[in-house]
């Protein structure tokens, strides 16, 4: 079983990985497809040789080397599908808001970009952020924050006032968008910590401890961003104090865990975003959504026919 995998076999395995990736929906949901495929390998429950043989002309033998080649190929496929979207955000963002939420002085934008890229890439490669990565990716891919924050700020609604109260006064609309998007990029890296606790609610004290610990690890990411990211894992009906930003992130996270329906508007159906927010309102107690925020998002989606 430990026969060395030849170069032709390796090429065949790569082709199979591409075929399987596409079959599991990698073109539309690369992260989910990648996670699913990695689990096949990691669990050891499936005979990889058999799985591959279904898609290959030549039979393969399951061995560690085969698994490693397969695993690396999946990583490469997922990265090539996901990283361009993340890079687009990182390259377009000026990170001016860092000065307002951090007291560590002026930091080179290039350094910030490198760090944020590294944090996301590390999480993506390890698979530790699991499905949370998918929502962060979808949020950036479908420009959810841009679309909704533009509307929220234009309406100057209750949610707008809550957000303005929470963020520094110097924040512009663009800063608010970048602030929330950065929370989404950092968030998956914190997930193993939250998941490890296996609790539905993280207390304020625990949150501060986690934020402090990750502040040094994620430097120069400001503690405030990490704090908001940790807070956003808490269902909002058990969170005390001001939580408009975290509440919004919490809702958008679940909204984008599974890719929002991207089909063309269908006769006889409500628009996809409006439908989701309507269902979320019905389930708001179950998931711990902030109903005030949800109602506003529902109205925006309804008015804009999203």
């Amino acid at each position: 079983m430990s026969a060395t995998v030849k170069s032709e076999e390796a090429a065949e395995i790569k082709r199979c990985a591409e075929g399987l990736f596409s079959r599991y929906g990698g073109d539309s949901d690369p992260i989910i497809a990648g996670l699913f495929m990695r689990r096949i390998i990691s669990s050891g429950e499936e005979n990889l040789g058999e799985v591959i043989s279904q898609y290959c002309s030549d039979p393969c033998h399951d061995n560690e080397e085969l698994r490693q080649i397969f695993y690396q190929e999946i990583l490469s496929l997922v990265s090539s599908a996901v990283i361009p979207t993340i890079n687009r955000f990182i390259d377009d963002c000026d990170f001016n808001f860092f000065d307002a939420v951090s007291d560590s002085g002026s930091i080179s934008v290039e350094f910030i970009r490198e760090r944020i890229y590294f944090i996301f890439k590390e999480t993506l490669d390890s698979g530790a952020g699991e499905i949370i990565l998918n929502s962060s990716f979808n949020i950036l891919r479908y420009r959810i924050i841009d679309k909704y924050l533009d509307e929220i700020f234009a309406m100057e609604s209750e949610l707008y006032r809550e957000i303005i109260k929470e963020v520094p006064k110097s924040f512009s609309l663009k800063d608010c968008k970048n602030f929330i998007k950065t929370i989404f990029v950092v968030r998956p890296s914190l997930y193993p910590e939250i998941n490890w606790k296996s609790t539905k609610h993280i207390s304020d004290e625990e949150r501060r401890v986690i934020a402090k610990r990750y502040e040094s690890r994620f430097r120069p990411i400001p503690c405030r961003i990490i704090d908001e990211a940790v807070k956003s894992f808490n269902p909002m009906n058990v969170t005390s104090g001001s939580n408009a930003v975290a509440g919004l992130v919490y809702i958008f996270d679940l909204f984008c865990r599974v890719s929002p329906w991207q089909g063309v508007p269908e006769p006889g159906a409500e628009p996809p975003h409006k439908s989701w927010f309507s269902l979320a309102l019905i389930n708001s107690e179950y998931f711990g959504f902030n109903t005030g925020i949800l109602e506003e998002l529902y109205c925006i989606a309804g008015e804009r026919n999203w």
Partner: peptide
């Protein structure tokens, strides 16, 4: 759908780290 362990993300991280 959102409670599905694959979506909720409650699968043990051992699986990913083992490989």
């Amino acid at each position: 759908i959102l409670d599905d362990k694959r979506v909720r993300g409650n699968v043990s991280s051992k699986q990913s780290s083992s490989s």
